[in-house]
Structures are given as structure tokens and as C-alpha cells.
Amino acid sequence: MHRFANPGRFLRLSNVILPWIAVLAAGLIAVGLYLALFVSPADYQQGESVRIMYVHVPSAWMAMFIYTVIAAASASSLIWRHPLADLVAKASSPIGACFTFLALVTGSLWGKPMWGTWWVWDARLTSVLVLFFLYLGHMALMGAFDSATRGARAAAILALVGFVNVPIIKFSVEWWSTLHQPASVLRLDGPSIHPSMLWPLLAMGLGFKLYYLALMLVRVKSELIAARLNARAATAAQLS
């Protein structure tokens, strides 16, 4: 049972902080939504469509943030064999994939009125698409083994290889798009952002981060219980 000693402490801690994080996340997202939809002004160029930014940009932040978390968890799993690290990576991967998907879909919904097409092979969109594939590969590899530990180890190596590659991919995609992109496309990262737009963006961004934290805690707890169930099933099978 000593293997669960540390996770036991984790469970107690997470039970204490989870309600606070959840309430804070809900509150921040509510405030962020109010500011985004009612208070913040329409952009003088993009009109009301700029409000898509308040879900698109935080989703894109989360897509990159969660991949970083997975890489850090994978490193601590491979180096220190921390039993919780694998679970953090496993719990995070689908959340990251969902946010990456959201970044793509909302980006597409923003691109249609702004660029006139649902999709352009712009450097940012393309690298987010590649990130989405990396997430899918990570999830698929994690689930492809009969033994959960083997899946977790293989996925951890893949996550680290992917993490090394993300800047390379990002750089090469930017290189590629400057070779091919006609310069007429309106860039989204235009002038510096006005505070009336920055506040809702920050509120949503922080709200999304806390939402992820709360969701991750719930999922890790669920995985811990599942591991305990499997261990019990295994001992029961040994006994009978």
C-alpha cells in the first residue's frame, strides 16, 4: 500500500482545494464572459467579430500550456518515476486535445468573416493543427498497450520528443508560410491590445487555466481510484 501513500496525500489535498478552484474558475469565466460580451468594445476594423478572440486566444493558450504540463509531467515520470506524473499526463492529454480543437474551430469561425475562408494555411493555424495531431498521437499511444504503465512510459517518451520538436515545427512552419503566404492577409496580431480588451482576455485566460486545474484534479482522482480497482481485481484474481 506504500505506493498510494503519496497519492493519498494528494487526494486529501485535492479534496480541500478542488471546491475553491472550481468556484474561482466559474467566477472568473462568468466575469470574463460578461466583460467580453457586454463591456468590451467592438474593434474598429473587425467589428463585433473580435469577441471570438475571448474564447479563441485562451483556448490556444491552453493548448500550448497543457502540452508543456504534459512534457514536464513526462520528464518527472521518466526521471523520478513519480507515480502521479503519469496520471497527470494521462488526465491532461484529452483536455489539451479539446482546447486545441476549440482553438482550431473558433479560429476558423473567426477567419471566415475576416479572411473570407474557413481555413488559411497561416503559420499559426498550421502549427496549432500539428499540435492537435501531436495530442492525438499521444492519446493513441497511451491507450494502445494492454499494460497501463507501458502505455504511460511510451507516451512520456513521445511527449518529450514532441516537446523538443514543437519549437522546431513552429519555426519551420513560420518559415514556410513566409515563403508561400501572399502578404495581403490581415494579421491577427496587429497593434498592441487595448486594456478594455485585455481584461476580459486575462479573466477568461485565468478562468480556463483554473478550469483545467480543477478538471485535471478530478480526472487524476478518477485514475487513482481506477488503479486501486485494478490492483484489487488483480489480487482477487491471485487469491482465487
Binding site: E48, I52, S59, L109
Partner: peptide, 24 residues
């Protein structure tokens, strides 16, 4: 109507809410 952009703004917020709630 969101100044004519309602057809883009609302689906963006809707799909975000939908996926986040479903995941939770």
C-alpha cells in the same frame, strides 16, 4: 446579431461552452 457577425460569434462561444461542459 452582433453587428452581422452573430452567425460566427455565437457558434464560437457555443462550441466552446459545449465542449468544456461535456468534458467536465
Amino acid at each position: 446579431t452582433m453587428g452581422g457577425y452573430g452567425g460566427y460569434v455565437w457558434p464560437a462561444f457555443g462550441v466552446t461552452a459545449l465542449i468544456m461542459i461535456w468534458l467536465l
